[in-house]
Design a protein around this nucleic acid. Structure first.
Lengths: 341, 341
DNA sequence: TTGCTGGATGTAACCATTTACATCCGCTAA
DNA sequence: TTAGCGGATGTAAATGGTTACATCCAGCAA
């Protein structure tokens, strides 16, 4: 069923059909009604491709996420979806597993499909791949700290500030050796985290020791790291993990070996999933405005798509602040923390 | 940059360009090389829409999932993605939140985009919406128990058998009152679960009591249900929840009120996420071949798309069996279970 | 009556491909 | 010499929309 047949059946021209759909005010109400009922009767749906071909506008964006197993990314997706659905865009989705090759192949694929925009999350594209993306001239936005050539706009969560607040909290509780368990995939945030750590350290005026290690961002990965840590001789007062999943794994390892949290080890995470308040002890962590981040990214991108000419070449930034959620996994806060803050 | 410009620059006709891409064996090697290098030089990417318009084939499918917060669905998505990527299909993704309206709107949207196929997961389309889907003539597959008109093929996990095994296990452990906490969204499986329950009940020859309740499939929902249960007078020996998230919520509620698991309440879940083995006590549950399910669904759909004429109108079925994972949340199994099995 | 105006509608070009069919040309066999 | 063949390439129709421009016509003023 195409527009020509509908036109024939309705006894009008194709232009009228098209106008009923795109500029209804240009056609006589009775004609409009007649055409609409005829469309319904014939079960006609306009062919989106033909339309896109003409307007070079697909009302479609692509979304690349390194992992959907993390609660943080799920929230980002959810935020993006909300905005995008309200504007009648469709989403091509790809779980990249943090693999730049999958990422790049996917970008080529959607570029051929002439999508209107791309949202990258914690991208690992190398310089040449990014250049290729830039050449496609497709508006894109990166959620993540590092700048990707060709992404006009980027927005991210201020991990520097978040880490600063978390470490300050831990120092305030009296911890002197605070280790970090980071994600071996998303190295984007590492520099930020280090900077935040150093700021808290400097400001405290104390000698705070720190050891960094890297592991897979999963319960499994956390468990392995936890076991490794327990077996070693030099042992931190506190451990901060990049993800909840890692923290949960560490908790499990601690439990298995009889290590008490928070009495023998303070534990905190840099993200916040529903599990954090469920486990015991409930986990102190950073709460991120992840849904908001997704919505912001989507809105920036859609703006960029829809008034392309307006702000071409002007890189924008959007920075969102995490919030410290103090629970019970780092020890008693009542007294010490009030003094510090 | 379009095919005509490339043709002009290369000094050949558009047909030759098209042939270089689609039927390279039909064109002289030197011509081919020349055209290819010219395409590269001009940074030409064929327009997918124009191609789709011509071939009425988009190499795109849609995926509708009721929730991405559940580990089970993540595995399904992952399985689908794997297959689909290897065949160079793109995926339109929608998180329906179990809302038939969102589901239906999305179907209309992707139908207009003339996608090649649809994967529905635990769909809640009503009869009329399903009919509309059928009218689109788009091959579709449903992962879930109930039949959706217009879905030629369907594949699902045998919850009847799974429930049977789980309940048999619980009866074998001596539990006499076994309650069910089900999902208030996915009512698809309810009948199956009831059937499995009855079979185990009948076979045991014992008088097993059961109360059903429904709640949101989340930690929150489980927590609420758990609190409700604790406050009531009549209390089950064992509780089976439809999802891990619910079970975790119930555990939390039990912990808060000092109720001991498994001593005072046996707890089991019908799905299996990494958390199940992390919490204490580790949760007895049903392990589902979810990745396999996703892969199977994707393969069935792609087969259906690619040899459409072959098996038109022949509904296929694919049933996968869950596996009982016995952990510690239902009590000591060593002795009683061996007798029973 | 005539000419003008403007709103409703029709005509046909255009978007970027694919491919059936036409054409061209060099070679072989009668 | 010429008909026939077949491989390489070109021509143009077709896919299903949008829209600039053309046309038609009713209403109104001169």
């Amino acid at each position: 069923m195409n527009i020509r047949k509908v036109a024939e059946m309705a006894g009008v021209s194709v232009a009228t059909i098209s106008r009923v759909l795109n500029h209804p005010e240009q056609v006589l109400p009775e004609t409009r009604e007649h055409v609409l009922s005829m469309m319904k009767q014939l079960n006609y749906t306009p062919n989106f491709f033909a339309r896109s071909l003409n307007l070079s506008k697909t009302n479609t964006i692509a979304l690349l996420i390194p992992s959907i197993e993390s609660d943080f990314y799920l929230k980002v997706i959810s935020g993006i979806e909300t905005v995008v659905r309200s504007k009648d865009y469709a989403v091509f989705f790809c779980n990249t597993h943090g693999n730049p090759q999958i990422e790049f192949d996917f970008i080529k694929m959607v570029a051929a499909r002439r999508i209107d925009g791309i949202v990258l999350v914690s991208s690992h594209l190398d310089e040449q791949q990014a250049l290729h993306l830039q050449n496609t001239k497709i508006p894109s936005i990166h959620i993540g700290k590092n700048r990707i050539s060709g992404c006009e706009t980027l927005c991210y969560i201020d991990f520097e500030e978040g880490t600063y607040r978390l470490i300050r909290h831990l120092i305030g509780l009296g911890h002197q050796r605070i280790d970090l368990l980071l994600d071996n995939l998303q190295t984007n945030e590492t520099a930020q985290i280090e900077a935040g750590f150093r700021r808290a350290q400097r400001e405290s005026g104390k000698r705070i020791k720190c050891k960094q290690s890297f592991g897979e961002s999963s319960v499994q990965g956390g468990y392995i790291a936890g076991q490794r840590m327990v077996q070693q001789d030099d042992f931190p007062d506190a451990l901060v993990t990049a993800s909840d999943e890692q923290a949960l794994g560490v908790m499990k390892a601690a439990q298995d070996t009889g290590l008490l949290i928070p009495q023998q080890l303070a534990l905190a995470s840099m993200t916040d999933s529903p599990m954090c308040s469920i486990v015991s002890p409930p986990l102190t962590c950073l709460e991120h405005p992840a849904v908001k981040l997704g919505m912001a990214a989507a809105r920036l991108l859609l703006d960029n798509i829809e008034n392309k000419e307006l702000e071409l070449g002007v890189p924008q930034e959007m920075i969102l602040q995490p919030k410290l959620k103090i629970r019970k996994s780092c020890g008693n806060t009542k007294y010490i923390y009030e003094l510090f803050d």
